[in-house]
């Protein structure tokens, strides 16, 4: 996949036309930032792309041709990974949670190797045997990203990945996301505070009144905060 072109996505909530014929291109190695007010439909859009919510109209142009919702769910949604605003940890250790993201057919040895790598990648070595449900918010996010790193989806959908995090955890998250992007994943990030992601973002779209409009990059960037962020990375 180099590009997926989602188009004509509509979703009604009762009488409200939440999403109106939305088009959204997703490129490999790109990071698309999705902004919009609370309730504008960012989460709904991501969940539609993840296959969790059924849109009223939907099609997507792929290398396989034009697919409808059902076909998309069948063929492509397994290559899409969605991260909840608060990632969910399964019962058990961090190790077990990472193991969940690996394909079933791998041998025990291969799994162990990959998990070790993932732990190193997300700086979670010390927590390998900790109970995943007891981790802090930042650690949650890192385990979730490590799962994504192991799963290697083509599209990674992130819903407010840095909310409720302290500065350090945010920087780490952005850093890890940058690595995932450079590995070729397409990122779609919904966020309130776009500034944190400015180092990553290649496209910026704003959702308002059911319409998705492009925002020119750098247009809103005016403070020094961004530069310091970049330097710290």
């Amino acid at each position: 996949m180099t590009k997926l072109q989602f188009q004509g996505i509509s979703k009604y909530f009762q009488d409200r036309h939440l999403l109106q014929e939305i088009s959204l291109p997703v490129w490999q190695g790109h990071c698309t930032l999705l902004t919009g007010a609370n309730g504008a439909g960012k989460t709904t859009l991501l969940r539609i792309l993840a296959g969790f919510e059924r849109p009223d109209t939907f099609e997507v142009q792929t290398s396989l041709g034009l697919l409808n919702w059902r076909q998309y769910k069948k063929t492509l949604s397994s290559r899409v990974l969605y991260l909840h605003q608060q990632p969910y940890m399964f019962e058990g250790s961090v190790w077990a949670n990472l193991d969940y993201a690996l394909p079933r057919h791998l041998s025990k040895l291969e799994r162990a190797e990959r998990i070790e790598e993932a732990l190193t990648w997300a700086v979670l070595e010390a927590l390998a045997n900790a109970k995943a449900k007891n981790l802090s918010g930042g650690e949650y996010q890192r385990v979730a990203l490590a799962r994504a790193w192991l799963r290697k989806p083509q599209i990674l959908l992130l819903d407010e990945p840095t909310s409720n995090m302290d500065q350090e955890a945010r920087l780490r998250t952005v850093h890890l996301l940058g690595q995932l992007r450079s590995e070729g994943m397409a990122l779609v990030v919904a966020s309130h505070d776009p500034d944190y992601f400015s180092s990553l973002v290649t496209d910026h779209l704003h959702l308002n009144q059911g319409q998705l409009l492009p925002v020119p990059l750098h247009a809103k960037r005016d403070n020094g905060n961004v530069t310091t962020l970049r330097q710290s990375l």
Partner: peptide, 26 residues
């Protein structure tokens, strides 16, 4: 049960049956 359990299992590539067993375990 947390709806995210099912969704996380599915998005991590679990089959419906495996996701069901996962949520059951949760």
């Amino acid at each position: 049960a947390d709806r995210r359990a099912w969704e996380t299992a599915r998005t991590l590539g679990a089959s419906r049956l495996r996701a069901l067993l996962t949520v059951t375990y949760e």
